[in-house]
Design a protein around this nucleic acid. Structure first.
Length: 278
DNA sequence: AAGCACACCTGCTAGC
DNA sequence: TGCTAGCAGGTGTGCT
């Protein structure tokens, strides 16, 4: 499930592959991927426009096109963006969107579970970002996470730390995987109430958010056993071997040897080390 | 208002 | 070996 590090890795690939190139032709397959407006809008509005920049906010990708038009993409659970060239072979199964660039190169949106989406933004807000993304909270990589900001977010909140970390309206980009890893690196149990953290604990949490996401980006994100995330050019992530707890319930903690515990928290699987985290 | 459950969907896996 | 039930999870919606 692509989270901030995976989406950022894809964004960097897009910067190399599509920026400065015109969109020539668009195909939309199925009815679910484009669902905020008629799919025909993509077919009529995108061709002829050049991709000027590719930005990211949380887990959303924004392709800024000519005339201030933004194409917004979200990979959700199973979405992939893939660069396709004449030598790529047949289309992958579950290809939902094809954008032909100049030459014969194509950008494909592949999404087996069809949770992902693509849409043309209705406009930009005062921030210069698509108005559909106005609800997103601070982006820990773009905006940084200083302890004061985190303390302000968590004050008087009884919700578990992990629930706060994955609330996109507070902090945008962290999902189930990195929330578990961040809690481990901060030495904090994921179910502790966010409002009860001490100042040193908040500092550790802020540092863990920054270091975990930064390191994961350096390693190209995480490709999990049952997921098939890969970057724009088909390469898997390499951060999964640096995971301490996610998906490791019942196995020994790599740091101390204690068995990692798996629980359900707010309907999501959660893993932690009862010795390293308190 | 805030917090929670659920729908959406397909592929994989554990268990029979 | 083959089948099936259960699980995986980000976001929007609707209910309490």
């Amino acid at each position: 499930m692509p989270e901030l590090p995976e989406v950022e890795t894809v964004r960097r690939g897009l910067e190399r592959f599509v920026v400065g190139r015109p969109m020539r032709l668009v195909e939309v397959m199925g009815t679910r991927t484009v669902r905020r407006h008629p799919a025909e809008w993509l077919l009529t509005q995108l061709p002829g426009r050049v991709v000027r920049r590719v930005t990211r906010r949380g887990k959303y990708l924004v392709l800024g096109l000519d005339d201030e038009v933004d194409l917004v993409l979200h990979l959700r659970m199973s979405g992939q963006l893939r660069a396709r060239t004449p030598s790529s072979g047949p289309r992958l199964a579950h290809t939902k969107l094809v954008v032909r660039l100049d030459g014969a190169d194509e950008l494909h949106f592949v999404d087996p579970r069809t949770f992902g989406e693509a849409f043309i933004s209705a406009g930009r807000g005062a921030s210069g970002r698509p108005i559909e993304l106005a609800r997103l909270g601070l982006d820990p990589v773009l905006d940084g996470v200083d302890p004061e900001a985190l303390a302000a977010l968590s004050v008087s909140r009884s919700r578990p730390i992990k629930v706060l970390l994955t609330d996109q309206q507070l902090i945008a980009g962290i999902g189930n995987v990195y929330a578990d890893e961040i809690c481990f690196r901060a030495g904090l149990l994921p179910y502790r109430g966010a409002g009860e953290l001490t100042d040193p604990e908040i500092e550790r949490l802020a540092a863990a958010i920054t270091s975990t996401l930064g390191e994961a980006i350096e390693y190209g994100g995480s490709t999990l056993r049952d997921e098939r995330y890969c970057d724009l050019f088909g390469a898997p992530g390499r951060f999964q071997s640096h995971h301490f707890v996610y998906g490791r319930a019942g196995q020994r903690c790599a740091r101390c040897g204690t068995d990692v515990v798996g629980i359900r928290l707010a309907g999501r699987s959660s893993c932690y080390c009862p010795s390293c985290q308190c």
